[in-house]
Design a protein around this nucleic acid. Sequence first.
DNA 1: GCCCTGACTCTCA
DNA 2: CTGAGAGCCAGGG
Length: 125
Amino acid sequence: MTVTKTKSPVNPKHSKIWQTVQAIPVGKIASYGQIADLAGLPGRARLVGKALGTAPKEGWRGQSVPWYRVLNSQGKISFPLGSENFERQKNLLQDEQVVVIGVRVKLKEFQWQPDLAELLFVLEH
DNA sequence: GCCCTGACTCTCA
DNA sequence: CTGAGAGCCAGGG
């Protein structure tokens, strides 16, 4: 039969990224590149940023997408200092006991290091 | 299809 | 630490 042109409202790569981001535990953070790798999209860190920007505010599959737990590879917030988004992200992180010094977080202490179980969970989705 | 832009990252100075 | 340059890829004009 003719394939009815169902307009896909959701970019599959984006939803895959959202799911991966949802696996980040409370109080932990991950980098764009790290999420890209876990989502099976190595080298597409920039895509992660774009995906988070279009993430449904209502959440995905019944869960909110914790976009604020994603920072750049240096552990720094990727929004211009002083912007609304910058403040919003910083506040949300601090609400979860993540220490933000200036524009940065100490990766040594807060970067998410998924164990095998968490890894498999993400890969299945 | 070309050109520019961006919530990125890595390397080198 | 800062900055420049080069990869990188998806979107929009």
